[in-house]
Every structure is written in structure tokens, then in C-alpha cells.
């Protein structure tokens, strides 16, 4: 008996929604820029899980190729983002995002 027969697709949608909302909560809840980055990764992973679930239930490989591309973009994003974070730390000696309010209206 395979997963597709044992588990309804809605459960995976529900799980992905919960993971995504936890990511949103992390972005709103924390002030440390690194944790906010991690929460963004969490959101990307929730979307990846949903795409994989849809692709498996539909039997179409294209969805999993999209997940592959999202992973590539996430890797590039983390490299540049952490470099920016290190530059910010060098200038303000902190990763608190409340020091970065110069562009705030």
C-alpha cells in the first residue's frame, strides 16, 4: 500500500500551511536577522513540500523539477543574504533589525 492511497492530499496541504505559518510567525516574532533568514527558509521548505506532494499525487515530474529550482535559488539567496548580514554586523556590531530603520518612511 503506497502513501498516495494511505494519506489524503489534504493532510499534506494542511501540514504545509502550518509550516508556512510558523515561518511567517518567525519573521514577525523575532528581531534577530539570522533567525528571520531561517524562517524564510522554513517557508520555502513548506512550499517545496506542497509542490512535491502535488507532483507525487498527480504523477507528474515537473513539480519536482520546480522544487529543484527553488532549492537552487534558496542556496544562492542564503549565500548573498549571509554576506549582507556580515557587512551589517561589521557596521552596527549587531544583527538586530531595528538598527536598520534608515529607509523607514
Amino acid at each position: 500500500m503506497s502513501t498516495i492511497q494511505a494519506i489524503p492530499l489534504n493532510w499534506y496541504i494542511l501540514l504545509s500551511a502550518v509550516l508556512f505559518v510558523i515561518g511567517v510567525l518567525g519573521v514577525l516574532y523575532r528581531r534577530n536577522a539570522i533567525i528571520i533568514f531561517m524562517s524564510v527558509e522554513l517557508m520555502l521548505n513548506a512550499v517545496n513540500l506542497l509542490l512535491t506532494a502535488f507532483s507525487s499525487y498527480r504523477g507528474d515530474s515537473a513539480g519536482q523539477v520546480f522544487v529543484f529550482f527553488i532549492m537552487a535559488v534558496a542556496a544562492a539567496e542564503v549565500a548573498v543574504g549571509l554576506a549582507i548580514l556580515i557587512v551589517i554586523y561589521r557596521n552596527t556590531n549587531s544583527t538586530d533589525i531595528n538598527f536598520l530603520n534608515k529607509l523607514k518612511w
Binding site: 492530499l9 507532483s55 507525487s56
Partner: peptide, 10 residues
């Protein structure tokens, strides 16, 4: 109901 395709897509 979703149409079922190739189960070995992954």
C-alpha cells in the same frame, strides 16, 4: 479527485 498519472514520477 485528481487524475492519476505515473506513480514513479519521483
Amino acid at each position: 479527485v485528481m487524475p492519476v498519472g505515473n506513480p514513479n514520477a519521483g
